[in-house]
Nucleic acid binder design. Sequence first.
DNA 1: CGGTATTTTGAGTATCGTCAAGGCCAGTGG
DNA 2: CCACTGGCCTTGACGATACTCAAAATACCG
Lengths: 259, 259
Amino acid sequence: MTSEKGDDGRDPAGLKLIRQFSELPDDVIDELRAMCRKRRFAADRTVVHDGEHPDDVGFVLSGVLRMQKTLSDGRQHIVGLLVEGDMFGHVFNGPLHFAIEAATDAEICAFRRSQFEELLMRSPDLERVVLLNVLNELDRARDWMIILSGQKVSGRLAGFLLVMCARFSAIDHLLTRRRDGVDVKIPISRTDLAHLLGTRPESISRAFHALADAGDISILRPDFVRIHDFEALAEKAGEDDPLSNANLREIVQAIGRET
Amino acid sequence: MTSEKGDDGRDPAGLKLIRQFSELPDDVIDELRAMCRKRRFAADRTVVHDGEHPDDVGFVLSGVLRMQKTLSDGRQHIVGLLVEGDMFGHVFNGPLHFAIEAATDAEICAFRRSQFEELLMRSPDLERVVLLNVLNELDRARDWMIILSGQKVSGRLAGFLLVMCARFSAIDHLLTRRRDGVDVKIPISRTDLAHLLGTRPESISRAFHALADAGDISILRPDFVRIHDFEALAEKAGEDDPLSNANLREIVQAIGRET
DNA sequence: CGGTATTTTGAGTATCGTCAAGGCCAGTGG
DNA sequence: CCACTGGCCTTGACGATACTCAAAATACCG
């Protein structure tokens, strides 16, 4: 469960760290290890350019990446975040119609697409891992859609915070539990958050403080908030059931016991 | 290209009609044919209930289905539309967290999930078809996200109309080309459209008439509009490049030649 | 032709986008 | 060590847009 960042010498690329890979047969892992290249990106560096046929398929080892699309008028919209264990780059021939940039300092392991696809053809296990990964991403995209269709900015922000807790609970340094709530590190700037939620930085700021005034959260630092009341957030977000997500349910129950 | 609806006697389920299946080996198609069941749904009937573990994987043969999520306050949000050739239902074990209903009268072919997955394990070709299908759906979900993050309702509506043209150009009865534009049949009600675009029916109505007043479209009937100016719609939608989509490019060029 | 559901229109209020100014923090250079 | 600078976040004021509630008009279906 705790990710052992220290390389043990036999897994320099950290492939074992990726949850889904651990199920694969050893020979497939060995092949992956042989063909992968570990790369680091500083914050705000571009990992994959917009519109180009990416030559790489990659997995995030650490840090946060953002998928973003630049519109004709120069505005940028973020269509999702990638964290530890997420896959990116189109597997079969499809041009990626958005760019991928590092939101924080990040490490990825990259595979040449041709090699990866060739291995994909030979290993049904790997193909199944990829399929599950894509299905997972599809679910997340739909979650974003639900959030985006909320009409008040504070509602969308509440939905964002819940998604952060639900999806990033396993990621170190983003989420820490306390007696009186959960501390969340927000890995992107206000401006990026505005792009993600389809609004402006000013509105994001007002929405944060509206949630704080309601007592649902506390703003410890601009990029660091403490969540007090998950039910209130869920209601503002219009979630069908705040406890539909297993991770969230666990977090909420843990708080409930201690208060 | 033109879909021949008449069964030829050897393909009662219409499997051949699904574009992606035509590439599969004959024996796989025969197996699919043997295990599939053709079902019809009247408009507004539920195909898959919310939250339940669906036993079926299905493909749309005709008509339009809507994927929708019921929120706690009773509001419904539509997460996407399914048309001819689209797949639905989770392939591997994942609860579908939204319901699927028929937006119009529709025909689907359904497979028992266990059987389908078993065949999936044996046929890499089929698995590849499924993977491509899911990747495609992921792209579409991201398209919706971009549209939803537009801040003016008329912009989101313009984006919706462009998606209709780009994605449904091959579907009979939804899109017909004319000398002075393209006629589009809108397969869902104003209320549903409002749920899809994250707003209210009144705003949808006003947005339609705003686009009509601008001369971009004509409202022939509430569910039937004629598009005159694709560039104007693309600009209002904030699309990066209106001609980035091959189908759209073709439609626009066809109009350009004839005017 | 009449009844019902859907769409449209109108008026008032709330929210948000925009522009502009001020505050906070980190890094830099004196 | 302190002042300065630049970036980001916040706050305020104003106009534009959209939501709400209500009523009228239209389309749909028998």
